[in-house]
Amino acid sequence: MTVESLTVFIVDDDERIREALEELLASHGMRAITFASARDYVNADKGNVPACLILDVELPDINGLELQEQLAKDDHPPIVFITGHGDIPSSVRAIRHGAVDFLTKPISDAALMAAIHAALAQDRKNRAERAELEEWRQRYLELTPREREVLPLVVSGLLNKQAAAELGISEVTLQLHRRSVMQKMAAASLADLVRIAERLAIPITHSRRAGRK
């Protein structure tokens, strides 16, 4: 992953700050896209690239903390706050809501770059997780309806016999389905399948004990 493919979004109402930060990032070989207000940022088409967001707390329309809350509902780049005069309650609130760092102006080069890198790293991690989940989700969608019925029973730990009885099919047929599920979900083992099901938030509807009963 090259530095060029990274994007740093900057939201600050002071043009001088935007220019200076853009220049500083440029000197670090990072691409910066600047916005004068929160609304401009929300409305902009930001593309789907690894990124982070440098957000000024004091903004003319809605302030940085409020924007953070709005963004929290969706996937968004990790946020680094900057402020003219930071107070403790604001910083606590920002960090609790997932901000990567809370920097007070004037900001030192090192602190800023460290925060940006940390943010980008987190973004990368987030992205990887999201991609994996998406793959499993695609795989899950490829399952036949019967296989989707079989999957929760299997990951719930029911014996083949139990699961077959549950579905009213023969054990042999169930085993065929099970094998098909394992293949389609690219699960190396039953444990792997359970982990995948958990990520997909597939509920474990039966326990072996309950099934026996």
Binding site: R16, E23, K105, D109, L112
Partner: peptide
């Protein structure tokens, strides 16, 4: 503070360049 922040950032950039 605002101009100072800009100055600091610019100075770092300058230094890097």
């Amino acid at each position: 503070n605002q101009p100072l922040t800009a100055i600091v950032a610019n100075s770092h950039a300058c230094q890097r360049w």
